[in-house]
Amino acid sequence: MLDFPNAKINLGLYITEKRPDGFHNLQSCFYPVRWTDALEILPSEQEAFDMTGLPVPGNPETNLCLKAYKLLQQDFSLPPVHMHLHKVIPMGAGLGGGSADAAFTLRILNKLFELNLGGDVLENYARQLGSDCAFFVQNKPVIATERGDVFSPVELSLSGYSCVVVYPGIHITTAEAYGSIKPETPTCDMAMLLKQEVKVWREVLKNDFEAALFPKYPELPQVKEKLYEAGAAYASMTGSGSAVYGLFKGEAPESLLFPDHYTVWKGLL
């Protein structure tokens, strides 16, 4: 069975407090975009996992796809499978690609072996794999709180907008990003902010990581400014970086160019 785990962007991201377990509570709107990896899972005589596309650092045996399979295998008699992941979404970019791969593994296994697990149950499995993994089970816009794994519905459609995501090749680890952040209680209601016109978001919708990371990586504010100069209604870093995206009403301009070593994705929302 073949599926295409997609990325997400953060519309606003506020780090509200540090938790006793060492993680942080946050508030953000997660919004899916169509930049995808490819994941195929087939029944096999023996367990196998391989990857193509972008190189993934670390031991393949610790990949989140395998962890998701092992997690379900603890509760169900799953036969061996052959998993192939073709990696396209860059890592360390704040796009949630690895989390999407894990969640889609759960979704595919659920269908492939007719486990009949509902969305809430799959989300609970996904929460054991990573803070934002659960989002990709339902894969629709939500306001995320706590560790990024507690969701509230939000009526928000960016239909008619295109998105340009720019990854400048800077890998920012979660530890690095959170190590330079100072949690603060937000003074705004995110659901109310999102009801305003997209062009107003520039003044009111913030990503807390920008203040910490932009001075360290000047390429990031340069990308953001270039997106605004090209006519973006809203631009922001996503997640804990380093990808920066712009939202354009209608099609994004074809003249928007970046250095060759940058990775750029453009698509409709």
Rank of each mutant, 00 (worst) to 15 (best):
A252M: 04
E47W: 12
L257C: 09
V33C: 01
S255R: 06
A134Q: 07
Y178A: 06
T62F: 00
F151M: 04
P43A: 09
L64R: 00
I41K: 05
A232G: 09
L66Q: 12
T145N: 01
T185F: 13
G239T: 07
R202P: 07
P141Y: 08
L268N: 04
K224R: 15
A211H: 07
N124G: 05
D120W: 00
G97I: 02
D260H: 14
F209L: 00
S99G: 12
G58F: 14
D260V: 15
Q222K: 15
F209M: 02
V121P: 00
G241L: 11
V137M: 12
A233Q: 13
G98F: 01
V88E: 12
P5T: 07
M83D: 07
K249S: 05
Y125A: 05
P168L: 11
M190V: 13
L129P: 00
N116A: 09
K87I: 05
L54W: 13
Q74H: 11
K67T: 00
L115E: 06
G241P: 05
V165E: 07
N59S: 13
F113D: 05
Q46F: 11
M190K: 02
A144T: 08
L2K: 08
L2W: 14
P20C: 06
K140S: 06
G250K: 08
R147T: 11
K266A: 14
V200T: 15
E219Y: 04
V244M: 12
S159V: 02
R34D: 11
G118M: 10
Q27Y: 03
A126L: 05
G231M: 08
E251W: 12
S240M: 04
L66M: 09
Q138W: 12
I9M: 03
D149N: 15
D3A: 14
G98P: 01
P186H: 13
K182H: 04
V142L: 04
A211D: 07
A252I: 05
E210I: 00
L11H: 09
H84G: 02
D149K: 02
A230V: 06
